[in-house]
């Protein structure tokens, strides 16, 4: 009887702990699930050929989905490190780099005014119009800064740069991965 009482006391204590732990585990699991679903580029994703993708997505499935590239440019750096693979598509250039043996999308460049961002921003557009479209994105984690005609929108590691000339006309649109120098 006494041993049973002792064991019951012990297990009661432990049960309390497990309940607390289970609650936290559920929270952790939920948080982890949330983390898994959200892409790193947030609202700065891109759509091409009805395929949604973005910066730091694995390149292979993206390229399989959007179709075969027209051509390829390999920009090798000095010696051997960090080859940029730039795939040419109609209206688009996709930059791919290998990180730890896996290829990732590290750049998306709009080449002409036939392609636009999911928000509707395109080359040739007025910059004020483009900024108004970008302002419709409601996400506190999205930051914007401007430096000499280059408007940079950053979400996590993804950076969208929109360049405008002195007349306020957009001349270049590019998505890229944030590097340390940024």
């Amino acid at each position: 009887m006494k041993k049973i009482l002792a064991l019951v006391t012990v297990f009661a204590l432990l049960t309390l702990c497990f309940c607390a732990a289970a609650a936290f585990a559920a929270d952790d699991a939920a948080a982890a699930e949330d983390e898994e679903e959200a892409p790193v580029y947030g609202p700065l994703g891109f759509v091409y050929n009805e395929v949604s993708f973005g910066i730091l997505d694995e390149a292979e499935p993206v390229m399989e989905a959007i179709g075969e590239a027209d051509d390829l440019f390999v920009s090798a750096s000095c010696a051997y490190q960090g080859d940029d693979y730039i795939y040419y598509y109609d209206g688009l250039e996709l930059t791919v780099n290998e990180i730890d043996g896996v290829s990732y999308v590290t750049g998306i460049t709009l080449v002409d005014d036939m392609i636009e961002t999911p928000q509707g921003v395109a080359i040739g557009m007025d910059i004020e119009e483009a900024l108004a479209l970008m302002a419709e994105i409601e996400d506190e984690a999205l930051t914007m800064e401007e430096n000499r005609g280059v408007y940079s929108f950053q979400y996590g590691p993804a950076l969208l740069m929109i360049q405008a000339n002195e007349d306020g006309e957009i001349t270049a649109i590019q998505y890229t991965a944030v590097t340390e120098e940024d």
């Binding site: 002792a6 012990v10 204590l13 432990l14 702990c17 607390a20 732990a21 936290f24």
Partner: peptide
């Protein structure tokens, strides 16, 4: 964290 608390208590249980 609770995992450490449970670890401690399990040590106690085994000792007892």
């Amino acid at each position: 964290a609770w995992n450490f608390v449970v670890w401690g208590l399990l040590n106690a249980v085994i000792i007892l």
